[in-house]
Design a protein around this nucleic acid. Sequence first.
DNA 1: GCGACAG
DNA 2: ATCTTGTCGC
Length: 226
Amino acid sequence: MTPFEMPADETAARAVQDELRGRVVLDEPGPEPGTGLVTGVDVAYDDERDVVAAAAVVLDAATLAVVDEATAVGRVTFPYVPGLLAFREIPTVLAALAALTSPPGLVVCDGYGRAHPRRFGLASHLGVVTGLPAIGVAKNPFLFTYDEPGPRRGDFTPLLADDGEEVGRALRTQEGVKPVFVSVGHRVDLATACAHTLRLAADYRLPESTRRADALCRRALREATT
DNA sequence: GCGACAG
DNA sequence: ATCTTGTCGC
């Protein structure tokens, strides 16, 4: 487990990304969809009091039943800077993951992995630091472009960087609903990442893992703040 | 130089 | 992310 480094400024943060990017593993297919465990992680903030709450929810990949969950509350130690989201979210997320009883299995992040200006987003960073397979499922295309995928669940189009690289996919998880943006984090290939996302988003646009983690970290923040 | 920009 | 009522629809 590579330690998480909290840089002093943005320049140092980018240097950390460049250094860690070389440790991302892209040639493993990843966990078989529908088997084992899948863990959703998410974070909520109270900017007024500089409080941050993270949640990790472990699901049985076959049934989507909740197997375990944990939360962690901390102080905001890094501002939101596009491209540097990991430094704001990961410290507390790591604490929540450490508080789990169950092993996490595949980690599903609310954000990007490879689809990142420096090709090292939140999911890549969390994957490298923990050594766990990780993927990113985001709600917006950020600085990438895509053609509208077909209307059916499972339809997808490539998410393209300005240099033409396919950094992820715009994946339709629900008929006639805006697609989600899937990218590889660590130790999972893109097709497998999309297969997991589709299974996890059987009933809603977003994966059940992130929906559960989102609800839990909001509750944890409210209870820590109230 | 200025604006845009995952959460 | 967060600020936020009612409202449309299953």
